[in-house]
Amino acid sequence: MNKAKTNWPVQILITLGSLLILFPLYLTITIALKDPQQMAQSIIAWPKHLHWENFSQAIQMTNFFQAFKNSAIITIFTVILTLLTNSLVAYSVARNMHKKFYKFLYYYLVSAMFIPFPIIMLPIVKQTSAWGMDNIVGLIFLYAVYGLSFNIFVYVGYIKSIPKELEEAAMIDGAGTWKIFWKVIFPLLTPINATVGILTALWAWNDFMLPLILLSDKNDATLPLVQYVFQGQFSTNYNLAFSSYLMALAPMIILYLFLQKWIISGVTKGAVK
């Protein structure tokens, strides 16, 4: 790049655009910190007196920490399970694509991406509850299974680019297939693991539909589900509602502030490949 001067028109447009992104978040924070009287004066202005008690009230009302714990457990275990199993399947498929059976598996799994969820929605509700899976464990399981379609697609593309010589060398050293995968291949998958891990984490953390239809016990509720469930009880108190929204959004935002570069490059690496 030549050392050209700042492109001011673009700078201004980009800055204005970013305000559009930040405004709803600013609004969420201010409303969360006001009381109804302050709202009546001005919704947008920053409050002079901050009502932190909105948060403690919302925590109590929605049982925030329970929901946070549920969301965290679901997200963390979904990511771990997805990374370990999906990469394994992809490796096996990628290395055997010349065989009819594996080729069939590849297309079977990937084409499932085109099956719209609503066709599964009604039966899966019955199935999971009949098998006692209408809980957190069932959710983790389903996320790992449903992610397979897309992840196989991403992983196989990447694994194909890893030269087979590496494995052959390890095989000559007497390493078995499993050992080769864990010691040679899996470490090489790190960039793509990051991609899959981030996308899976975002999905599991933010998903609303599966928890809505699947979970029965309200003690299992995730953060988005809790926001929905309390919608009726929030109805006349926006300050309480927004402090609850803010708390539900905050963990991801905080994580993002620290890991921003890593998350963005993780997402893009998978795509550029």
């Binding site: 009604l122 509700v125 019955k126 999971t128 509850s129 009949a130 209408d134 239809i213 029965s216």
Partner: peptide, 8 residues
């Protein structure tokens, strides 16, 4: 009704 479908 969803929960009726689930026998739950």
């Amino acid at each position: 009704k969803t929960r009726l479908t689930k026998n739950d």
